[in-house]
Computed example of a mutant assay.
Amino acid sequence: MAGELQEPLSWIGQVDSLHSGSISLGRFESEDLSWERRSSFSQNSDRIQETLIDPCIKGTQNVLNSCLKASSVKRVVFTSSSSTVRYRDDSPQIFSLNESHWSDIEYCKRHNLWYAYAKTVAEKEAWRISKENGIDLVSFIPSFVVGPLLAPEPSSTLLLIQSIVKGSRGEYPNTAVGFTHVDDVVAGNILAMENSKATGRLVCSGPVAHWSQIIKMLRAKYPSYPYENKCSSQEGDSIPHSMDTTKIARLGLPPFKTLEQMFDDCIRSLQEKGFL
């Protein structure tokens, strides 16, 4: 493969005790690459600092500091989020958001967008540590991940889709966001890890849509479900925008799967596993 770091490559798919500061270095010593996993999408509004912000930031610090002690780690792939890019007052005026754009921390605070706040602060901290210590860091930036169920239980993102389809949530999010098939996310992660030309931040996002559009699409194809009809009154999360994925496409990522493909795979998987 052109631009390949090394073959074969060893992966770290999960790091235990992210928040304790006592990560076992034995997990790293024989590895060429490390990837720092994504934080949970869900959040407890009553304990936001304790349950979301601190774990996200401290977990990032602990993983990178452990990588510093493991001399064999050649690259760290940090799984970030499009939430670190799209929350800006000027997003509607920007033709297409790319790797150079960052979410505005004050905007996130103003609209109580604490997941975006935590992810943005954590990624900036990752870049600070990597630049100060010469770590080869690649930040992988997916949007809302959709696709078939890969674990025994639905993830927080699939639980959100399930609750919207079943009409059990009370309302659907007033959110416009990019959606990306899990297959595209996996392929993008592999490029970020294996391709030596992968540098900096890599946006990996399929089509952008509002949840009202998603519900309309699903209702037409799967009409037997009740679906949510009421839109949330949350402000600040429905900014019209688009995501520029030119950089990751140039590394060799194939065209993104469509909204129809990713949600078909998701709904059928939830049906087959008895969750719908």
Rank of each mutant, 00 (worst) to 15 (best):
S30W: 10
L9K: 01
E29T: 03
C108I: 11
S72F: 08
Q43H: 00
D89Q: 01
F144S: 15
L9S: 08
E171W: 12
V76P: 03
P92V: 03
S30K: 12
P173E: 02
F144P: 00
I267Q: 12
R268M: 13
M217R: 06
I135M: 05
S17Y: 12
L159G: 02
S24W: 02
S242Q: 12
V177A: 13
K230I: 15
I164C: 12
K124I: 03
E272T: 06
E31Y: 04
S83C: 14
S45I: 11
E153M: 07
S20Q: 14
R38K: 06
H19A: 14
S40E: 01
Q61W: 07
A118P: 11
A209I: 04
R128T: 12
T258E: 13
Y227S: 01
Q213W: 04
W102D: 08
L25H: 14
E260I: 05
E235C: 09
R27N: 11
K119E: 10
E50N: 05
A187W: 08
G134S: 12
G13Q: 05
N98K: 01
A249D: 13
L202T: 08
T120N: 01
W114V: 02
S130E: 07
D16G: 14
R250M: 15
Y115F: 11
L52N: 01
T60E: 01
S91P: 11
V208E: 06
Q162D: 11
D237M: 03
C266G: 09
S163N: 11
D265N: 05
S39Q: 01
R88D: 04
T157F: 02
A118V: 08
N112D: 15
C108E: 09
S224D: 07
T258V: 13
Q261S: 00
G274V: 11
S39E: 00
R128S: 13
T258F: 12
A220C: 14
K257E: 03
S10A: 03
H210L: 13
I164Q: 00
Q61H: 02
I141F: 07
P254T: 02
K69F: 05
